[in-house]
């Protein structure tokens, strides 16, 4: 057990810039997919909450399909499924993009979390009090200004508790990257477990690290809620 820790602690915790540790890769996967997912989810949520059917229906289909299938299947489809198509392999750009496991996992995670986040944000947008929108329109605000100054600030605030849940779930979902050969925390744990044949210690260390990240995220969101939902206290 001591040997395993001595041999692997650097790979778990702090690697070098050339070989980042599992912890760094896991955090990077989480932050990158959540950030890209957020950027994608805001316009999609506006479209989903819209009364125009040609905007709302395609987004609804997208979230329905993504939320109805396991992330593991989505990842496999992007990682090994798409690459098996001749059309993808014969296009230089697509070939380069999908050959890299890291790109595929980030893409799969982003599309996945964007669907869940869209639902959360769209729900929040729909529950905006009528009066606020009427008042804004009476003040002469239109389209973009209305969304930028009135709807989004309050909708994103109301979505915060549900969004914090999604962030934790995304952190947990990044473990799937290990199945696509991305060297995240779980992959390091798997290597350590098979090297020393001590599954409890190897996976236990990873579990404790994930637990710590989860608690840190929960604490951060508590701070954020304290700051942005101060008017509810």
């Amino acid at each position: 057990m001591i040997e395993l820790i001595q041999q692997y602690w650097q790979q778990y915790l702090c690697g070098t810039p050339a070989h980042p540790s599992g912890l760094v890769i896991t955090l990077w996967l989480t932050v990158a997919s959540l950030g890209l997912g957020f950027l994608l989810a805001v316009p999609l949520a506006v479209a989903k909450a819209s009364t125009k059917r040609w905007l709302a229906v395609p987004v609804a289909i997208y979230t329905y399909v993504i939320r109805g299938t396991p992330l593991y299947v989505q990842l496999l489809l992007l990682y090994s499924g798409l690459y098996s198509l001749d059309a993808v392999r014969s296009t230089a750009f697509l070939n380069g993009f999908f050959r890299d496991a890291f790109n595929c996992t980030i893409l799969a995670f982003t599309l996945n979390t964007a669907a869940y986040t869209t639902e959360i944000f769209a729900g929040a947008i729909k529950t905006t009090p009528r009066g606020e929108i009427e008042a804004a329109r009476a003040c002469g605000m239109s389209g973009l200004t209305l969304y930028r100054c009135i709807i989004m600030p309050s909708a994103l605030r109301r979505a915060l508790p549900a969004y914090s849940n999604e962030v934790i779930l995304m952190l947990h979902a990044t473990t799937l990257a290990a199945t696509a050969t991305v060297p995240d925390l779980l992959k390091v744990a798997r290597n350590a477990a098979s090297d020393y044949y001590l599954p409890f210690v190897a996976y236990g260390i990873a579990a404790v690290l994930y637990l710590c990240i989860s608690f840190a995220l929960i604490w951060l969101f508590r701070l954020a809620e304290h700051r942005w939902l101060a008017y509810l206290r």
Binding site: H172, A189, F200, A206, A207
Partner: peptide, 13 residues
């Protein structure tokens, strides 16, 4: 607090 995949591998193995 721990991902389900990690727990699955931890418990099973």
């Amino acid at each position: 607090g721990v991902p389900d995949l990690v727990l699955m591998l931890l418990l099973y193995y």
